[in-house]
Design a protein around this nucleic acid. Structure first.
Lengths: 182, 182
DNA sequence: TAGAACATGTAAGACGTTACATGATTCA
DNA sequence: TGAATCATGTAACGTCTTACATGTTCTA
């Protein structure tokens, strides 16, 4: 359902081809997942069948034909309904926590090394989302409110990774200081 | 792969039946996902076929028979290898961000109402993970280090939801104060 | 008398990733 | 010459959720 809404919102912003959507979605930090061909082209055909989007083929010389999709009135209504649905708390899949959970199997040095690697991995992600939050990029800004909301969306990822990094660093320091082995 | 490691770690802690594992995993905040029958029973049969776990049938009067699984030496080695793998940054799936992204379609009151609902939803989650972090529960504590690590794991979820709640409240206040419509 | 807990599993489908397939053009 | 970009799609596979199927015992 999420991908469908992402697509409808994007098409309401501006008409686009499946390929365009794929690029935008993959590049985005918000809905980068499912930015793969399979789901996008499938969803587009589905949405078209349901009459939520229409498509217009645009021939190009020396390049493959493009199918430019646009949102319909029904699609707009469906999107509005989705937007009003009860929001859900975010889901987190942190496989590192499983690694830590059973780290009893490993010596102190290995656990500290894992934490260091994890912290660096998170730091890289943090820099990436900070960089994307800083550059204006191509986001919709049809009103001051929308521009502000998109800024907050970018900030959301930043604050998430910041909290994660801080947690990792604190855990690391505490482990070093407590020196449980002694 | 994650579920397999979760199972191996649990079985290394103490032998258990599929039903036991299901209950523990579903109740856990760390790996509650995939705490469903299908995956657990399938994984157990798979792990058994690969020789990473063994199983012993325990008959019970007037209750269905139990298959008690234990980890093997090979299983322990496989677990150790997994634990040493390069950690990955956490994945976040926050469908609320998609809702906000296209909120341009909605009036100010609706956006504020959504943010309020989201904040409350996150607050509920926060209380849940805080409650679970506070009560000792049945976690492994085979050493002071392990006890500490499990405390930090619980803290991780708490700090994540705290950051999220703070973000939601700030966004809400800013929207109210800026009053973009005026 | 109905539902929850115990205990094992199967089936169907949604969701997601990776790779394949085609074919022209542009750039290093 | 080989890779990347443009542009559409398909296939295979893995993960995850929901519901079904069976049968006893205990509790509300």
């Amino acid at each position: 359902m999420e991908l469908r809404d992402a697509i409808l919102g994007l098409l309401r912003w501006k008409p686009a081809s499946g390929y365009d959507l794929k690029r935008i979605i993959s590049a985005s930090d918000i809905f980068y997942w499912s930015g793969n061909n399979n789901q996008i082209y499938k969803s587009l055909l589905e949405l078209q069948k349901e009459g939520l989007v229409t498509c217009q083929v645009q021939l190009q010389e020396s390049l493959p034909a493009k199918k430019i999709y646009s949102i319909t009135a029904e699609g707009l209504e469906a999107l509005r309904q989705s937007l009003l649905a009860a929001p859900e708390a975010p889901e987190r899949h942190n496989s590192f926590l499983i690694q830590l959970a059973w780290a009893e199997l490993l010596p102190d040095e290995a656990v500290l090394a894992l934490l260091e690697q994890y912290a660096q991995e998170v730091a890289v992600r943090l820099q990436m989302v900070q960089a994307q939050a800083a550059r204006p990029g191509s986001r919709p800004n049809r009103s001051p409110r929308e521009t502000y909301l998109w800024q907050r969306i970018a900030d959301n990822l930043v604050s998430c990774y910041q909290a994660e990094l801080e947690w990792a660093r604190q855990t690391q320091q505490a482990l070093q200081q407590k020196n449980f082995k002694a």
